[in-house]
């Protein structure tokens, strides 16, 4: 039981709330969303409170994350894209901190649930669609008709473009979700080997060294993945927003 790798993804109700037959309980997932938001917000707020001309280490960490996302967005979507900066920055920081918090033992990983990542992906795609139609009207549909395609191929290309556009929220959410899920399961399985092997006496303890080393290595890898997936999520968000800004590219 202790080694069940799926248990870490269980939702546990902490404060049951039910409205109109729907379950809106405050769960461990909700708790970690609050923790993610509170920790990130507090960090960004407190480290920049001195407004130092010469930044302290923590202040420069906040500034680095700001400039990192700002450069990412400016590179992908140009300076017009900066109006989406708060959204991209919030998404990046939320996903990053949720991923990193999830790496602590016994902590719940918010982004290991498909519904959370899917909701975030829908927020991105929803923004792209709403802003695209607001800004360009039906000109936004030019997104599906790339320039310079021979007339015969246009229907086929449009079909492919539509399918690729519709699969974006799915690929965006599944990528993050699956990475988090698989990483945590792997980590739990290897860590489980350590405990079960070391219960078998001296030989077992010796045999447990290898999975222990693996656990350490995978933990390091998971830190990389946690950052990388947040980065990928943010970069793709920037690229999709670029479509909304410049659909006729």
């Amino acid at each position: 039981m202790a080694n069940d790798p799926i248990h870490q993804f269980q939702i546990a109700k902490l404060i049951p709330i039910e409205i109109g037959g729907m379950d809106f309980s405050f769960t461990n997932s909700s708790l970690f969303m609050v923790a993610t938001v509170a920790a990130t917000g507090a960090f960004l707020y407190l480290t920049t409170s001195s407004r130092g001309l010469i930044p302290s280490r923590l202040q420069s960490l906040s500034e680095m994350s700001y400039e990192f996302v700002a450069n990412m967005l400016r590179d992908a979507a140009g300076s017009h894209g900066m109006k989406f900066f708060p959204m991209v920055f919030s998404l990046f920081m939320f996903v990053l901190v949720a991923n990193l918090l999830g790496l602590f033992p016994y902590f719940f990983t918010v982004t290991s649930h498909i519904i959370v990542t899917f909701a975030l992906a829908l927020l991105v795609i929803g923004t792209v669609v709403v802003y695209g139609f607001m800004k360009h009207g039906f000109g936004f549909l030019k997104l599906f008709v790339p320039q310079g395609v021979p007339g015969i191929l246009v229907p086929l290309v449009v079909l492919i473009e539509v399918i690729s556009f519709l699969s974006r929220p799915i690929s965006l959410s599944v990528r993050l979700f699956a990475n988090m899920l698989a990483g945590h399961i792997t980590l739990k399985v290897f860590a489980g080997f350590v405990t079960s092997l070391s219960g078998l006496g001296a030989v077992g303890v010796a045999g447990a060294i290898l999975p222990l080393a693996m656990t350490v290595a995978i933990t390091a890898l998971e830190f990389l993945v946690a950052f990388l997936q947040a980065y990928v999520f943010a970069v793709l968000t920037c690229m999709y927003l670029n479509d909304a800004l410049h659909p006729g590219h």
């Binding site: 939702i11 729907m22 379950d23 809106f24 769960t27 997932s29 909700s30 609050v34 918010v110 909701a119």
Partner: peptide, 12 residues
């Protein structure tokens, strides 16, 4: 668990 997660995600 979806409604609860969506609600709390939206709030937070």
């Amino acid at each position: 668990s979806f409604p609860s997660q969506i609600l709390w995600l939206a709030i937070t």
